[in-house]
């Protein structure tokens, strides 16, 4: 789709290793993106930032879906990504509404303040 002359990559062994991108590369990258999102969900207190980290995790999963869709020459993976994005939009709308309600009740968006359900 987007073409660029990459023959120069073959001129040195170190650069040649950068030249061939496989499905395995994409799966490892998707796990790294998911892990960054997971780190954000565990370490942050701001509910808005936690929601953003969740979106990052969903994106990591989407990347694996598209990579395997390409690997198996099957478009169903991309259709699934479409549904993931639709569900993520619905989830963001409801979660942000909950955050606004939380801010009204607690006067802040720190999840440490919302402890009513703690036994």
């Amino acid at each position: 789709m987007i073409a660029m002359d990459t023959t120069f990559l073959a001129s040195s062994p170190a650069l040649a290793a950068l030249g061939e991108i496989t499905t395995a590369h994409y799966v490892v990258l998707s796990s790294l993106i998911f892990a960054v999102g997971l780190f954000g969900v565990v370490t942050r207190k701001n509910a808005v930032v936690i929601l953003m980290s969740l979106e990052l995790m969903l994106n990591g999963a989407n990347l694996a879906f598209v990579a395997f869709s390409r690997q198996h020459a099957n478009l169903q993976g991309q259709v699934f990504v479409f549904f993931v994005i639709a569900v993520a939009a619905a989830e963001a709308a409801v979660a942000l509404a909950i955050i606004i309600a939380l801010n009204r009740v607690k006067g802040g968006v720190s999840l440490d303040d919302a402890t009513e359900l703690k036994g």
């Binding site: 796990s31 892990a35 780190f39 565990v42 370490t43 701001n46 930032v49 606004i100 802040g108 440490d112």
Partner: peptide, 28 residues
């Protein structure tokens, strides 16, 4: 939400960094 900059920063001191790093590393 109209949070003041200082209020935004105050609630956002990270915690459980070790747990976060460990779970992320375990997943990868």
């Amino acid at each position: 939400l109209n949070l003041t900059p200082s209020g935004l920063l105050r609630i956002d001191r990270p915690r459980w960094t070790t747990l976060g790093l460990a779970s992320a590393a375990a997943f990868v």
